[in-house]
Design a protein around this nucleic acid. Structure first.
Lengths: 161, 161
DNA sequence: TATTGTTATACTCTATAACTATA
DNA sequence: TATAGTTATAGAGTATAACAATA
């Protein structure tokens, strides 16, 4: 048994990532970093950035006037406390407003503002486009395939199916 | 034009997620949250948790004695400053150690410790298993398909191909 | 007793820039 | 002048638990 004399690799091409090579969670986690950073750049200055929460919240409040915070929290996989701070922020930015539910005084109802609706419109353009651009090196049919499978995963995780 | 009288949805099944429905980045970002949380639970107490960085670093240092921080930083998509703190932490935990490169005094070489090697062994079991378990509701062949496509995305992003 | 949302805290990650030492 | 790594800092996100009000 001799000490290994091989020089360590210096280029990404020379690296074998071990068991991570076949581990889906690894790819989800690393690609998430890259695509999230890219998205943040695209959204720069647009009051929405960092974390999937704001975008989804804006769209859902726009689509469903009166929707409750706890339902959105569920859809974006955050707890109520994180959701509360998200809403605080978006309310201060004038994107949404909250009312106490007349039916259940514990609960709130969320409504979009004019500024929020305008931003939602922009978001609907930018966000899907960013995704297509970022993954443009993956052929369309393969992208559709991945989306199809991950959509089912998401729906299963949040209990949509 | 009358005010909408429809009641807002109260169940995930009744929600349409708008343009996010066909947006790959959305699924990557949300599923990342869920799978990362699940992985953290599985790794509880194991000195490795939060962020893909530690796991990848441990495996690469174990596989490539003398590998440089900047190369690992590149593989895990972090900058040198984040990498430095990661190494600090793992060094304090006794998982790896660093030496100054004899060839280039600016550079460092990373080496695994006994404790680190032992942990790497455990990681090689747990991490792929967690991924398989978490995504077990996706049929094997579909999982392989997604991995295949995302692997190419990852390799492209970090310049392995 | 369970649920909706709030508050407080401590921890981690992130991004940026300025810095040193060496090449 | 460029590169490897360090340090400092400010901002965000995360997780947890305890809490108030209502049902």
């Amino acid at each position: 048994m001799t000490k290994p004399t091989a020089k360590p690799p210096t280029r990404p091409q020379d690296i074998d990532i071990d068991v991570l090579e076949d581990t889906l969670s690894f790819y989800i986690r690393t690609i998430n970093l890259a695509v999230s950073r890219d998205l943040d750049q695209r959204l720069e200055g647009l009051e929405v950035a960092k974390g999937t929460g704001k975008i989804t919240t804006l769209l859902l409040v726009d689509d469903y006037p009166g929707i409750r915070p706890s339902l959105i929290a569920h859809m974006i996989m955050r707890d109520r406390s994180a959701m509360g701070r998200l809403i605080d922020q978006m309310e201060h930015q004038g994107l949404i407003r909250r009312e106490v539910s007349p039916e259940d005084n514990r609960a709130q109802e969320l409504y979009i503002t004019e500024a929020g609706a305008a931003l939602a419109e922009k978001i609907r353009e930018i966000v899907p486009q960013q995704s297509r651009d970022f993954f443009s090196f993956i052929p369309q049919d393969e992208q559709a395939l991945v989306i199809d499978i991950l959509r089912r995963a998401y729906r299963r995780i949040v209990g949509m199916s």
